[in-house]
Design a binder for these strands. Structure first.
Length: 418
RNA sequence: GUGGCUAUAGCUCAGCAUGGCAGAGCACCAGAUUGUGGAUCUGGCUGUCGCGGGUUCAAAUCCCGCUAGCCACCCCA
């Protein structure tokens, strides 16, 4: 028989091992707690959507062209694995008439997203996001609220030491004129720009502002700023968002070079970073207002604002910052039979389990060395069973920390352990 | 998608330049010892050396291809 290769995980996806699970649980619980306190309802949408739903949002960006998991199902439908939550949530909002209820709808979603990207640490092809969306209101107060929810969540998972970067990118009334100004500024400099930026100049000039290339950086400080060219409504909105954040005691830094990749974004954009970091790939999350998306997807024009955060990175930082040694105990009680006491040990474990989590070490082996296992399991008590005692339905109960040791009848174990 | 680095035991890695018996620490298993305990000592197990091909008497080592991970870029909806 030829040997077959063992089948490994698909490129770019990963297993979340038991050691990491407590952080995921904690992050999710904190998200639900905070979201619910602000009146957000959970929504679950499918992982697969019509490819067109996703593609409408950003037709000619690289991201959608190259990084979308796209396939045909057996019925010939062109489908995609969702690369983000917003498009699906907005679809569901209209499709099920949430737009007919009280406005706005405050929604949150936790789940896996998929992008066919070249993998790196913290960048997986399947990754998990917490997503918040407030659909059906243009109020600046909601821009600030979403930021506050995001910040409170990160605080609750001990990542509250944040730098919140904030900017506005105008709307369909004032941005086109600004983009022309920006192009006019950069065109004479074109040959001095990086090759990437030369390409972006006509197609997506906003991205020149957040280029990381050393060639490009010197020119941007003299570039026109959107904040000097906002229409009256956008300027008022922008001022109000900042006032609301100020009065909420939320600190932020204005970053005139913070932009978002897609056209449907309007007005407020923001990103949250751990305070120490500077790299853009360290972002814990980001979001903004997207008053143009609903219309791009064929629904009535509807204002909305949202936030998304990668749970993979958040849980990674939670774990890195966790001073506690060792994991959660897997069980409180370890039953340790000495010799052939399988039936008896199972019965004693069943008794202990009425009050405490309990495991039995059924493996035969040197009795004395089994103490190590008690430590590894994190047990607080060990129940020692020897044949002579077992015959009388008694055992020795030892408390690991205090090293106390007493003879106990099986029936008294729950009382002692409680 | 582009460029670079890497892949050897469950984990962290040495060995590779200059081809010649597959190694260490940790972990695991067993034994001894410590008042039945985390320490110490002794012994042991664990390898398609990422995969495939080539060169060679001989390949973990050199060459080519592939796969995967990591770093930077790109992207970040």
């Amino acid at each position: 028989m030829p040997r077959t290769d063992p089948i490994k995980a698909v490129r770019g996806v990963r297993d979340i091992l038991p050691r990491e699970i407590p952080y995921w649980r904690e992050a999710e619980k904190a998200a639900r707690d905070v979201a619910q306190r602000f009146g957000y309802d959970e929504i679950v949408t499918p992982i697969i959507e019509h490819a067109e739903l996703i593609e409408r949002a950003g037709e000619d960006t690289d991201a959608f062209a190259k990084e979308l998991y796209k396939f045909e199902d057996r019925g010939g439908r062109k489908l995609a694995l969702r690369p983000e939550a917003t498009a699906g949530v907005v679809r569901a909002y209209f499709e099920h008439g949430l737009n007919q209820g009280p406005q706005p709808s405050r929604l949150y979603l936790i789940g896996p997203m998929f992008r066919y990207d070249r993998p790196q640490k913290g960048r997986y092809r399947q990754f998990f996001q917490l997503d918040l969306e407030v659909i059906g209101s243009a109020s600046a107060a909601l821009d600030a609220e979403v930021i506050e929810v995001a910040r409170n969540w990160l605080r609750q998972v001990r990542l509250g030491d944040l730098r919140i970067e904030l900017n506005t990118i105008g709307d369909s009334r004032c941005r086109p004129a600004y983009l022309e100004l920006l192009k006019d500024y950069y065109r004479p400099l074109k040959l001095k720009l990086s090759p990437d930026s030369q390409q972006r100049l006509e197609r997506n000039p906003l991205r020149l502002l957040d280029s990381k290339s050393e060639q490009d950086v010197p020119f941007r400080s003299n570039a026109p700023r959107i904040t000097d060219h906002l229409c009256a409504d956008c300027a008022a909105h922008w001022a109000l968002v900042r006032r609301l954040l100020d009065s909420a005691g939320i600190e932020y830094v204005l970053n005139p070079y913070l932009v978002r990749g897609l056209d449907y974004y309007t007005r407020t954009v923001f990103e949250l970073f751990p305070s120490g970091s500077s790299g853009q790939q360290d972002a814990l999350g980001g979001g903004g207002r997207y008053d143009g998306l609903a219309e791009a997807e064929g629904w009535p024009a509807t204002s909305a604002v949202g936030f998304a955060s990668g749970l993979d990175r958040v849980t990674e930082l939670m774990e890195a910052g966790d001073k506690r040694v060792g994991g959660q105990p897997a069980a409180d009680v370890l039953v340790l039979p000495d010799g052939d006491l399988v039936m008896e040990a199972a019965e004693v474990a069943r008794i202990c389990r009425t009050v405490r989590s309990t495991v039995v070490d059924y493996e035969s082996g040197k009795f004395t060395s089994k103490w190590r296992l008690a430590e590894k399991v994190g047990a607080r008590w060990v129940v020692l069973m020897r044949p002579a005692e077992a015959a009388k339905r008694t055992a020795r109960l030892r408390e690991v920390a205090s090293r106390t040791d007493m003879a106990v009848s099986w029936e008294d174990l729950p009382g002692k352990l409680a």
